[in-house]
Design a protein around this nucleic acid. Structure first.
Lengths: 104, 104
DNA sequence: TGAACATATGAATATCTGTTCATATGTATT
DNA sequence: AATACATATGAACAGATATTCATATGTTCA
């Protein structure tokens, strides 16, 4: 068996490759990364996230929707506010892996 | 000190956020992910990569350039061929962290 | 040197993405 | 009910991105 066949066999299937790329795509925008860091340890309202991230309310809301669809964040409603948090412990791990990589 | 201030203090600086997003952007395209999986364990010529990835030679070459600029891959020339490999052990870790995340 | 091969590159194009602006929706308060 | 507040949403736009096609560059071998 040559190398090419060996690699082909160990290659994740098309769908996994696609989903993986999709996951990283979620982390490929500075605004989204900031949002995730913001709510990594504390849940936060959209208003607070907006202030911390330093973008507009609309932009933040749009990005929260993207993150929500990817199931990277969850939310609960409290009165007029909507409070977001990271929905998955892996997110922190992946972010710090990445951070470790770039700080070298 | 309120929560907002606390989060702002722990937030990575703008440049780190940007670089981090940039790193993940490299992993946000299926073709690039496939290329990286291909050369994760064995170095491979562009021709072999092209066959494994199942794209065109040109597309693969363009993406290799992107990965090269991000210093995620390195290469050596052997005769007419150029042989690429992953330049950083972290890449494997980040990929499998991501893979672990999606397979749940 | 010339032909064949391997890879890189540039231009063009179609698609995707993030932001902005305006406004809608939903909730609390008076 | 009317107003103020918090968030979401849709359309439009500008910029980015991946692929394709054609071709250039560079290397080997006859």
């Amino acid at each position: 068996m040559d190398n090419i066949e060996k690699v082909k066999e160990n290659m994740p299937i098309e769908e996994e490759i696609f989903e993986l790329a999709e996951l990283f795509k979620m982390l490929s925008d500075p605004t989204r990364v900031k949002i995730l860091y913001t709510i990594l340890e504390n849940e936060m309202s959209v208003g607070d996230i907006t202030e911390i991230v330093g973008s507009t309310q609309s932009a933040v809301s749009h990005q929260l929707r993207v993150l929500k669809q990817a199931r990277l964040v969850k939310y609960r409603k409290v009165g007029k506010s909507v409070i977001y948090s990271v929905s998955d412990e892996h997110v922190a791990t992946i972010l710090s892996m990445g951070m470790e990589h770039i700080s070298e």
